[in-house]
Simulated scan of single mutants.
Amino acid sequence: MPYRNHMVPFETTEEPEEFRLKKTVFLGYTDVNAGSIRALLGITMKREYSDVNIPELCNARIAVELLGILDPRDKPFSPLQVWNLKYEQFSVILVNTILKPETCHHVCSWIVVMCTSRYTCCVDKIVVLSALRVDVPSSHVSSHLKRAPIYEKTINDMPRTKCPSLPGKSGMTDPFLSTLIQMVHVGCVPTCFLVVPAHRAWPGTARDEDGSKEVCEDLALVPRTYISQ
């Protein structure tokens, strides 16, 4: 199915003057093993919540659920939720549901509109975390590495890390990421994609056997590195 890259109108869940993204936006979604969403859900800093209601997600189910008892200070997870870290200049967008290919453009359009609207943001860049089934040419893989590296790909921006660039001939199949790439190009949004090669995980918690625990650990280091700078 071809991907459309036009913007879709939406209703904000709060008044524009109250709902503002911060300078750096981390984006996690339900990728091939939910590595990025699991990593960002592990952030424990004090935060403000906003649930986003997009009509196309009205019947969507949560992909990664909260284990244990909910802290009274926290809100339950929702299919599309934003966290503003109270004492940092960071926001977190969590796409915590498995998106159908025909739904991706609605969510990606909302993200780009929110990151470019003069009423709702002062965003400098988006940092997208992704665990991705990607075919990296063998010539780019170092045999001495014990685990897969994090690759970086930037659009409308300079590289932000010392991670190697994702080889141009790498193949991938990810409708959400493909749609988002098109839309940040069109919207001229400075975006950094940090990709960990991964495979589909087993249901349940992250574990060593399928590599999902390793992916979560690697991706969890990214926001910590930005915040500590």
Rank of each mutant, 00 (worst) to 15 (best):
His105Gln: 07
Asp218Glu: 10
Leu129Thr: 05
Val25Leu: 05
Cys115Leu: 05
Val123Tyr: 14
Pro55Trp: 05
Asp74Ser: 09
Ala206Asn: 08
Arg73Ser: 13
His199Ser: 13
Lys146Asn: 12
Arg207Thr: 06
Pro175Leu: 04
Asn53Ile: 03
His199Gly: 13
Lys213Tyr: 02
Ser138Leu: 10
Arg147Cys: 04
His185Phe: 08
Pro72Thr: 10
Leu66Ala: 06
Thr191Val: 03
Arg47Tyr: 10
Thr44Gly: 03
Asp124Ala: 02
Ile227Thr: 08
Asn33Ile: 00
Cys104Met: 07
Ser139Gln: 15
Thr30His: 11
Cys188Asn: 14
Ser130Gly: 03
Thr30Lys: 07
Arg20Cys: 03
Val128Lys: 06
Cys108Gln: 04
Pro79Leu: 02
Gly211Gln: 07
Cys104Glu: 08
Ala220Lys: 13
Leu177Asn: 04
Thr13Phe: 04
Val184Ile: 14
Leu67Gln: 15
Lys153Ala: 03
Gln229Pro: 00
Arg4Pro: 00
Ser91Met: 06
Leu21Met: 09
Arg147Met: 10
Met158Gly: 00
Asp174Leu: 06
Val195His: 09
Asn84Leu: 09
Glu56His: 12
Leu21Ile: 02
Trp83Ala: 02
Met158Pro: 00
Gly28Lys: 00
Thr30Ile: 00
Asp31Phe: 05
Ser178Cys: 08
Val8Lys: 02
Ala39Met: 03
Ser50Lys: 12
His6Ile: 10
Ser50Pro: 00
Ser143Val: 11
His105Arg: 05
Val82Lys: 03
Leu219Tyr: 04
Tyr3Leu: 14
Phe176Trp: 11
Asp71Val: 03
Ser228Ala: 11
Pro79Cys: 07
Asn53Tyr: 14
Pro137Met: 08
Ile54Val: 14
Asp31Ala: 09
Asp157Pro: 00
Cys163Ile: 03
Leu177Ile: 10
Glu102Pro: 01
Met7Val: 03
Ile227Met: 12
Gly28His: 05
Pro76Tyr: 11
Arg133Gln: 15
Arg38Pro: 04
Thr173Lys: 13
Arg61Trp: 06
Asp218Pro: 00
Leu70His: 07
Ser36Ile: 05
Asn156Ala: 01
Pro16Cys: 08
Arg133Ala: 12
Arg207Met: 11
Glu15Gln: 13
Cys115Glu: 10
Val123His: 15
Ser138Phe: 01
Thr161Asp: 07
Phe193Lys: 04
Arg47His: 15
Val113Cys: 09
Asp51Ala: 08
Val95Trp: 00
Thr225Gln: 12
Leu99Glu: 03
